[in-house]
Each structure stands twice: as structure tokens, then as C-alpha cells.
Design a protein around this nucleic acid. Structure first.
Ligand SMILES: [Mn+2]
Ligand SMILES: [Mn+2]
Ligand SMILES: [Mn+2]
Ligand SMILES: [Mn+2]
Lengths: 218, 218
DNA sequence: CGGCAGAGTTAGTGTACCCTAATTCTGGTA
DNA sequence: TACCAGAATTAGGGTACACTAACTCTGCCG
């Protein structure tokens, strides 16, 4: 088998890192995968041999079109599965990520198609992240963090980071969900809390939490 | 990781082979797994080291209680998933086996519990095979093949073999499904076809297909 | 009960990941 | 520009599973 579950995760992570760093460095991949940089070198060499990555030693990697295709397929699986778990099986949004992390590698095309159809070919996952289409088209996604706003700014939450269940439970408590309108009331200096109005209620958001909430400014 | 997806499949297959052979021989495992006997030896040694198998060199293996527990968990996953795919996602009974073969190793306890609940804690999978309970209790299953019956016998189909999609499509055409009542009209000698009445219609069943259909005699 | 066929194991190889330790490269700073 | 810290790679080792080829054991049969 040329493409294993681990390799799919490498490609997925490289895709995500590429949004903010290109070429993607060995150390970034190692950090994201939770393994040692030395281990990454071997794998990215192999992935470049099979033409899924372009690898420039000591510089980093970029996805080839073929590699990007694989990455987007895995991301599509992941996000469709997350949404399916919420909609069809009653999961809460903080429980779906870990389950999807495993399922994404084993579901068939038929499974993917069936749940996509049942969900009405959705465009967003439970965290507001765009779901790539079957032919690899993915919507742009906001990179403006709530933590970067200033007093008086109004914005709509577009997505939240989904890897940390604790963060998601915290955000749910505050009603900070994709689609919610927020108005920044005040910002404490030097990385302090942010005071916002959400759903008419005023709430205090920790700065680190606000780093994981992305918005579209109005 | 002590227990990999491959090892789960070994244990599952050994569980099934144990129904008709004990201890289970290296060659049987190799045939069922589609690999060489030499490869099996190494794996069963490791599985006996970690106390999931009792291994007597040159004789074969038996599951320890711990090994049987793992096997039954995997089988529970497999059969629940098969039924879920049919009931919730509109799969036909010939499509579910391959999908379940992969999913069985990655679903969480939560997933298992949710689909079991949604299905009403079912006792049989789409092929009539019993689903072990969460604490490892499994119903007896018929071992009387349709091919072993004689003219005049009446029986109810209890289960069919689920690994061969072609066989399942063939059986579906003939309405040979679990629960169906059959009456043997005649049997051609020397492994010939079997003529049966199913749902009031008379049908001819190939002998090899009849080997994969198990019944309870009336 | 000796011999032999077939079953099973061992030996040696290869791929896929992972690790630590040692070495080399790179890019920015003095 | 020479140096150095940090980044990256290489070297060497380990586990998990596959394979083929060679050897050994077992059980049956004459
Ligand atoms: Mn994954
Ligand atoms: Mn998500
Ligand atoms: Mn399996
Ligand atoms: Mn089945």
C-alpha cells in the first residue's frame, strides 16, 4: 500500500501548515504530528519519491497537485464525518474531532457519498470549517482571529479551532459558535481578556480562547 | 500500541476458526488471512507473549479469555456496523462487509453505543449472524448448511455467509434470506443443485451457494 | 516402526514508522 | 565575513508485518 493512514495525516497537516508557511519546514510538521523531526525527514523523502510532495532538503516541502488532492480528500472525509456525527448520531461538537481523525482514513467513496447526500451536501462542518467538494474545491476561510479585534468592532464568527475539546466546551458555554454576531466591548491590554457582546449578553473571553475563534468583520 | 488492526483481525479469525477446529492450526489462519503460514508464526508468537493466545508450537493456538474478549468486541463492532450501514445509510447486504472490515477497528466505544442504541440493541446482523453483547455474550449459531438437507426437509434460514458479495447478490435474487422458510423439493446427487420452495416459489440453488446458507430444521 | 508428505518454524530480507545521538547545513549576527 | 545556534539530516536501532527459502517436526501409512 503506497498511501498509509500515517501518510494521509502527513499530507493533511502539510496542507494546513501551507496556509501560513511555504515551503513547510520539517520542524513544523514534527510539532504538528507530535513526533521527532528526524522521523519526519524519512517520511517526507518517501512522499516526495512517490510525487506527493516536492522536497528541497534543508528548506522544506510543498504539496504537489497529487498530494493536495489526497490532502483535500482526507479533509473532506474528516469534516463530513464530524458533521454526520453531530447531525445523525447526537455527538456534541467537542467529541467529533478524535473520532473523525480515525474514521477519515477508512471510509469508502460510497460511505462518503451517502453521508454527503444525507447531509444535503453541506459546505461547513460543525466548527464552521469549509468542506472541500468531491473534486477538490475548497472555500476560502477567514484568518482573522477574534483576539485581533479592537473595542467597537463588530463581526460574525466564521469558524473555531476544533482540536481542543476543552476549548470547544468553553466556547459553547459562551455561545461563541459559527454564525454568532459579536461586538467587542473592550480589550484588556497585553494579552488580557476580551469583553464582547454575544446574543445580547456580555461575556469575557480569555485571550488564548479568542486566538482560536475566527471572524468576518462587518 | 500493543493491539493493532492486524492483530484484531487475527484474533477475530481465530475465534471463528475455533468453532470448528481447536487448537486452530497455523495453516488455517494463513488461508483465512490470505497470507503465508511463515508470516502467521511470528504474529501468533507475539500474541501469545501478550497473553491473548495460548500457543503450542506445531499444534496450534487457542484464544485466552482476554483474547476472546478482544475478538468478540471486534465482531460486535463489525456486525453492528453492518446493520447500521443497511438501516441508516441504505447499503445493501452485499456491500456492508468490506466497509465494516475497516470500520470495526477504529470506532470508539461511544460510536458503538450510539449506533447500538439507535438500532434498538439488535441481536442479529443483516446476514443473520448474532451480535455479541457489550459484555461478550454471543448467541449460538446454526451450523447446519442448506446443502446438507434432504428432499422433504423443511427449515428456516438462520444465517448466510457474508464475505462474498456475489454470493449475497445471488441469494437475494432467490429470496434466500434469514427468516425465510424453505422446503427441500429434491437434491441432485454428487454435489448437484438443490431444488427448494421459498416463499411459495420453487428455486434451484447451486451446491456451493447452499454451503453458505445455514438453517434451523423444523 | 521407519519413512515421507505436508505442516510448521526458522532464517534472512524488505517496507513502514518511530526513536536517540551524532553530524552537517543555514541564516543571521557580531 | 566568520561564527554559531538552531534546523535538518544521517546513522544506527527497534517494532510490526509481510515475503521466500531452507530446515524441522509430526502423524500417518505401509
Ligand atoms: Mn487522521
Ligand atoms: Mn472540524
Ligand atoms: Mn478487519
Ligand atoms: Mn455479517
Amino acid at each position: 500500500m503506497l498511501i498509509t493512514q500515517e501518510r494521509e495525516d502527513y499530507l493533511k497537516i502539510i496542507y494546513k501548515l501551507q496556509q501560513s508557511e511555504s515551503p513547510v519546514r520539517t520542524n513544523s510538521i514534527a510539532r504538528a504530528m507530535g513526533i521527532e523531526p528526524a522521523s519526519v525527514t524519512g517520511v517526507i523523502k518517501k512522499l516526495s519519491e512517490i510525487k506527493l510532495l516536492d522536497y528541497r532538503p534543508y528548506k522544506g516541502v510543498t504539496l504537489t497537485p497529487a498530494g493536495e488532492k489526497v490532502a483535500l480528500e482526507v479533509i473532506r472525509h474528516h469534516r463530513l464525518i464530524e458533521l454526520y456525527l453531530v447531525e445523525a448520531l447526537g455527538y456534541s461538537w467537542d467529541e467529533v474531532h478524535d473520532e473523525a481523525e480515525h474514521l477519515e482514513h477508512v471510509v469508502s467513496d460510497r460511505f462518503e457519498d451517502r453521508i454527503a447526500e444525507m447531509l444535503g451536501h453541506p459546505e461547513l462542518d460543525p466548527h464552521g470549517e469549509p468542506i472541500p467538494t468531491k473534486d477538490g474545491v475548497i472555500a476560502e476561510t477567514s484568518t482573522q482571529a477574534l483576539s485581533s479585534l479592537s473595542a467597537g468592532d463588530r463581526a460574525v464568527i466564521s469558524r473555531v479551532e476544533d482540536e481542543d475539546g476543552d476549548l470547544l466546551r468553553y466556547l459553547a458555554q459562551l455561545n461563541l459558535r459559527p454564525g454568532a454576531s459579536v461586538e467587542v466591548l473592550s480589550v484588556e491590554p497585553y494579552g488580557g481578556s476580551i469583553h464582547v457582546r454575544v446574543d445580547g449578553k456580555s461575556e469575557t473571553v480569555g485571550q488564548e480562547a479568542a486566538d482560536g475563534v475566527f471572524v468576518d468583520l462587518e
